[in-house]
Design a protein around this nucleic acid. Structure first.
Lengths: 217, 217
DNA sequence: CTGGTTTAGTACCAGTCGGTAATTAAATTT
DNA sequence: AAATTTAATTACCGACTGGTACTAAACCAG
């Protein structure tokens, strides 16, 4: 279809490999020669296709977000399941992504937050931006839960969002440190006990409820 | 006192500077030339005094442990204060160390756990060892709290220790990502709510207390 | 086959990496 | 003052870093 010499390597596959490499070894720990030998695309090809190392890393993080972090946050915000179910699914998702048998341990974003020093400022800022998105998604869900009656009206939504955002970071670091699967799920259980969920918004019990905000979900 | 030419630079001060550098920029992000120019000790001096880069990093981590992590863990294990006080002081200590205005953000050990790939295996193992020590200290304190009656007899001590060990990691990463002081202390408040502490072992309040929720917060 | 177009591959750049040999400088001991 | 001991300094090593000119190859339309 194209006019010139056909590509040897699919740029999308290259980006997938680059994402895994940066995820595992970080920005400074992954050299352009590494990427070249891992992907099979020679260095000049990398530069002409994607730009410099900074640009490749940024595209790799975007890819991570649309493959891993993004869907989980969308589920958080959009799912109609009860709050407790949604939050638990979020944390379980973090564990699953951070312990995938194939693929790097931990979380790309968490690694970025820690490595931040010594990488271009734009990438540091990118990592922080993605981190904020996670906290915002949690905040949105907790806010609507408060209006739903799943949480008390005086619940501190921001604190709760910061807390569970932090739990994701903790799980990511523990997974990277090699914590076993079972420990991480015990951790999730403990973290879930913080959620001050109200059990009284079940339709069978609606006659007992005084608060009129039980509708609208 | 010594026989030859006197030292220009105190090796202990060199190690202090090296610790801060590795803490801030990590193993790969800190070059021997960096250390040489920061400390004022030329490279051959570094090698003859401490050994290779791996050895310097290990000594820097030991220094971090005896200056920061160690005293906090000792307080955890040895203090006679009530469990809630001791655990809160531990988390407050993590926040304080991770947000010191002078000095790097975050936690040396947590950074090590994340950077692990691409550094010598012995250093990776060292980081994991220190991480285990923190969890063990928490475990010891929770175990004795259970025998004291500060915790229920059926409390899952290991889960609780894993949880609070993870909170330290979360705080470290959040601090490194630039989270404000206030957010971190709110986080500590939330994390403290997990502690299933029994209030009935205080002699002065035994007769007044029916409901354990009569304290602050 | 020819010319144009797009990619792949080789070779190279200046700079830095961790690490070291050889030498010079400064002190003490004899 | 000479010999000895210790540390500071300079200069360098091969390997690797991010990044790039330049050339060779593989396709298309004519």
């Amino acid at each position: 279809m194209p006019r010139g010499r056909p590509r040897k390597t699919d740029p999308d596959a290259v980006l997938e490999t680059a994402m895994k490499a940066f995820w595992e070894r970080g920005f400074e720990g992954t050299s352009m020669n590494d990427l070249s030998s891992m992907t099979g695309m020679a260095k000049p090809g990398l530069y002409s296709n994607f730009g410099d190392k900074e640009a490749i890393y940024a595209k790799a993080m975007e890819r991570y977000c649309s493959s891993y972090a993004g869907p989980m946050l969308e589920d958080l915000v959009r799912s109609d399941d009860p709050l407790e179910v949604v939050v638990r699914r979020f944390l379980d998702g973090v564990v699953a992504a951070a312990t995938e048998t194939m693929g790097p341990k931990g979380c790309f974003v968490a690694n970025n937050l820690v490595e931040c020093a010594g990488m271009p400022q734009s990438l540091e800022a990118l990592g922080r931006y993605v981190d904020e998105q996670r906290q915002k998604a949690l905040s949105i869900r907790f806010q609507s839960a408060r209006k739903n009656g799943e949480l008390h009206e005086d619940t501190d939504v921001k604190s709760l969002a910061e807390f569970y955002s932090g739990q994701a970071l903790a799980l990511a670091v523990m997974a990277r440190a090699g914590a076993p699967w079972a420990s991480l799920y015990r951790f999730v259980d403990t973290a879930m006990s913080v959620l001050p969920v109200l059990e009284d918004n079940d339709p069978e019990e609606e006659e007992y409820v005084e608060d009129p905000l039980w509708e609208l979900r």
